[in-house]
Design a protein around this nucleic acid. Structure first.
Lengths: 196, 196
DNA sequence: GTCTATAGGTGGATAGAC
DNA sequence: GTCTATCCACCTATAGAC
């Protein structure tokens, strides 16, 4: 609880995040983080156990940012609009924070393992989505049924579109604005198929 | 056209592929390939331009293998069954060759760039799928419309399921057999939604 | 075509002085 | 808490002998 607003530990955390966002996991190194923070590589070990612990901090920040997007969907008035807004915010997060999206949802088992330490517990994305779906089922907007299975289908739907886009396989879909409109059409299509 | 069945170049190619399948892109190195092939690292440069060229060979092999899966769908008798078989073979390929799937469809721009050299041209997956969909539209099994847009939706659907599975996010879906059945249900659901 | 030797670079992590 | 110095591992790539 020191009065210090910018201790070395905080500095390392923010520099680590910037480095990852700029260079990706492949070029993420403890030494470079230290360089940017203006300290020696050895100093890092006074604050973190090593490279993995440092990267876990990066993952944590990404996960928290993801929540700030999802939670905006709760500002919508109806169950239906909250569900569609969830999908919209999901795309917004991915578009505006592609590296974060990668590490959270497209990571290799390797990266994922270290990121998982930060997560601890079941995937929170999924629970939020299940809640939105249960809400819609209760309001008879979606057909009553296995909310978990429906949530998985919807998640896979948005993730499929987003991840193919981020990997460059859907560059034919135009710019971000055009893609967003296509994304909306596709999602509306799926939801109408899942309606009663 | 030499009578040699196993020249050093071939040896390097197969060892490179094995190494990638075992260790992934992160630990793929020219030196290790050379070690496994029983030659010095310098010898590799007599046969390939460098690490990138060697990895491009690996990508090529994965792409060709992918085709051998897709083409099996053509053995089905009807447009509808050819389309569903395409989805089934897509999952089979990914399940039986996860590393290949990763490098082809989940790669980072970095890996993708070098793989793209091997691909040259528009994504062949997509054309195969478009053909199956046009076939179904012509047979009135799918609603007539923008085949490209429908193909993108279906591709994103199967890719979303597959890639979340490969990333470990759908481990709750049980073993491969259980997941395959869920995958079939989900796909049937989507197709019925796309029918007239 | 293959080798050894080498140049020149990355990185993680630790020991011990201050 | 931070530093310097160090160790060790790994890598790509090239030069020149054989």
């Amino acid at each position: 609880m020191g009065a210090d607003g910018e201790g070395t530990k905080d500095r390392l955390r923010t520099e680590a995040r910037d480095l990852y966002l700029e260079e990706g996991f492949a070029h993420f190194s403890l030494r470079e983080v230290a360089r940017r923070a203006g300290v020696s590589a050895a100093a890092v070990y006074r604050h973190y156990d090593g490279k993995e612990a440092l990267f876990a901090e990066v993952c944590m920040a990404g996960l928290q940012l993801f929540y700030t997007y999802l939670v905006r969907a709760m500002g919508e008035p109806t169950p239906r609009s909250r569900l569609t807004a969830t999908a919209t915010q999901y795309l917004r997060f991915a578009t505006e924070n592609p590296r974060d999206y990668r590490v959270l949802f497209m990571g290799e088992p390797q990266e994922l393992a270290v990121g998982k330490a930060a997560k601890q517990g079941p995937d929170p994305t999924f629970q939020f989505l299940i809640d939105r779906i249960r809400e819609c089922m209760h309001a008879r907007i979606l057909q009553e049924g296995d909310a978990l299975e429906v949530a998985t289908i919807i998640w896979a739907h948005v993730h499929g579109l987003v991840s193919l886009r981020l990997s460059g396989h859907l560059s034919s879909a135009g710019d971000d604005g055009e893609f967003a409109r296509f994304y909306e059409r596709a999602t509306e299509h799926l939801l109408s198929g899942l309606a009663a």
